[in-house]
Design a protein around this nucleic acid. Structure first.
Lengths: 344, 344
DNA sequence: TTTAGCACTCTAAAGCTTAGAGTGCTAAAG
DNA sequence: CTTTAGCACTCTAAGCTTTAGAGTGCTAAA
């Protein structure tokens, strides 16, 4: 479409973006001329900057202020100008030491801790979708009698989820009968993902079994509820207060809107899910976001897998002015970690 | 100590408190004289108010402003002047309908929903401590082999907690042996509260059993971890953004401090636990709070029980200027609900 | 003891001034 | 044709001043 930018323009755009990310102040021509010694006077830079403004890569808050990157400018920077260094040794140390803390056995613990690490390493708010139970494959169903009336139904998936539920049995069931039913179910369901266990399949099985036993209604309820409940998977947040450190959120009203958003788990889930189809790191800048609520933010997400199955999304949410290069680094690092950690 | 207040002073103090709670503006003598027709001129009220200020029941933000209640004033109001009406029919309706939502099977669901109801009914932030696992009594331990290497250990308490954990078995164990060990443990532990299952007791049992089987190490790890992990019980929050609606929190720095507090679960737990010894509703106004972090707030708490055992604390946290009467009402209602709901 | 009247005080909001940063334009230099 | 120096101009944020309004405390009279 538009002609490609000259190298000089690229350099200048890059300088403006980097500077603005660091200082949050509009960047003037003098600043660019001085700090990135490129042998040009501020007047020349000024002309170039005026061009960049015409091309919509830069904005001017008011006539006599410096320039700030437009959303298009950020996009251009992310796509063409940014270099992604590796993490500094210090960062790497800090991150891996926080990640390797002892008591991280439970999946939930791992996720929560990851959220914390991610937010503190980026100084932004982090969102992590818990592993999607529904994409896991059915492994085993067990029924464990507790006393006369009650039993514990346990559902286990290939990705290590364990769901359980105490159910009431109206009639007692002999060990043998129970065993029969349970192994029938296991046989029928083995290997299916939870997604595939539809209500209609359940009904079919139910019909099959009802001929012989009316009693397992409750066990089916567990299955059905698992399906319903898990439609909204938990989203874990880290560093929600970090947005308060960003100068773009010094307005109480904006803060309220963001915090309100953070309280709406289903919406957060949708926001994360929305990006989860893609393969690698995805950067959504401002209006590129589908959801109105985060149109003033940038969302950077990655997906993590267990045994090569995409199970969830990890993201960083912050103002459009954020340190893209750093966030992407950290996010990559974390996704690697999760992939490795959850597969064991 | 000080001589009791005259009826007239009480009336005036009450009027100031009520008015200030409603408007968040300092209350002037004219306002009191007019809105609470007590046949006195503003000048008279003015004199009385000056007296109340001398007695430390009222404060004056600056020379020519109205008066606001001091912390002592609020305390006097709560102890002597406040009348606690019942909930209005509307409120009652709203609360019971939110509470009776369908899918509240899990304890956690009940707690989370309660937090939501409490915060929206009071327009404050609500805190609810999850039921204290440690005060529950041991009921049953089960071990459920999954495959060659792994088993599921399930721990059940009298208050309906179910903890489980997949463990690795280095050696295989015959059904009979397993059964033997498990029933030994159940016999030894039945009826003890989790608190009573100390590490030393576990070690003792371990010694007993090690003579026969080296294998259950992992099962003990579950027990031990349960003890450790649960030291910090979850605290559920509702309406954290409500503080943003309070005019006393329009300062970003204060907001940051509060939100930071909300992210520190262990501290929240301590704050709630601190009040849990007492019987009924407890009101802590400002500096009456033990914890520095909430010295600018009022915390109103109640405790809920399962089968007459105190299991957790429910609280409302907000600015010192809050609608005490209303909050106390709603809190009472909610504690009743929880007591009833969790005992079934 | 209560009240009217009045001078006084204090704040918050609105208006005004100013310093500083940065621009855009023009004309000269390379 | 491109780059640069110079300069007038613009805009904001911060500080200062002014003012209206609310409320007080005191005094003297009822």
């Amino acid at each position: 479409m538009t002609s490609p930018l000259s190298d000089r323009k690229k350099q200048i755009l890059r300088a403006v973006v980097i500077n603005y990310i660091k200082t949050a102040e509009p960047v003037g021509s003098r600043t660019v001329a001085r700090s990135y010694r490129m042998g040009l006077s501020s007047a020349t830079i000024r002309n170039e900057m005026a061009d960049l403004e015409d091309l919509d890569y830069l904005d001017q808050p008011h006539t006599s202020a410096g320039r700030i990157p437009s959303q298009l400018g950020y996009r251009y920077y992310v796509d063409n100008l940014m270099d992604i260094d590796n993490l500094s040794a210090d960062d790497e140390m800090a991150i891996s030491s926080s990640l390797s803390s002892e008591k991280m056995r439970e999946i939930e613990q791992i996720i929560i801790n990851s959220a914390r690490v991610l937010s503190s390493a980026t100084n932004q708010t982090s969102l992590i979708m818990g592993p999607q139970f529904r994409k896991s494959a059915f492994r085993q169903l067990r029924i464990l009698p507790l006393d006369d009336k009650r039993s514990l139904v346990v559902l286990i998936t290939d990705t290590g989820f364990i769901k359980n539920k105490v159910i009431d049995m109206q009639q007692q069931l002999s060990q043998a009968e129970l065993h029969q039913v349970v192994s029938y179910l296991n046989q029928k369901l083995y290997g299916l993902t939870i997604d595939q266990v539809t209500t209609s399949l359940i009904n079919e099985l139910k019909r099959d079994l009802f001929k012989r036993l009316e009693i397992l209604e409750q066990a089916f309820i567990l299955l059905e509820e698992s399906l319903k409940e898990e439609k909204q998977i938990r989203v874990f947040l880290g560093g929600t207060t970090n947005i308060l450190n960003q100068p773009e959120f010094k307005d109480v009203d904006k803060i309220r809107r963001m915090l309100n958003l953070f309280e709406q788990e289903p919406l957060l889930f949708k926001i994360l899910e929305d990006t989860s189809s893609e393969d690698n790191i995805v950067v959504r800048i401002g209006a590129e976001n589908e959801f109105e609520a985060i149109r003033e933010c940038t969302l950077i997400t990655g997906t993590y897998k267990i045994h090569d199955k995409t199970l969830g999304t990890v993201g960083v949410l912050g103002p459009i002015r954020m340190d893209y290069s750093r966030v992407i680094c950290v996010l990559r690092r974390l996704v690697d970690y999760l992939n490795q950690r959850l597969s064991s």
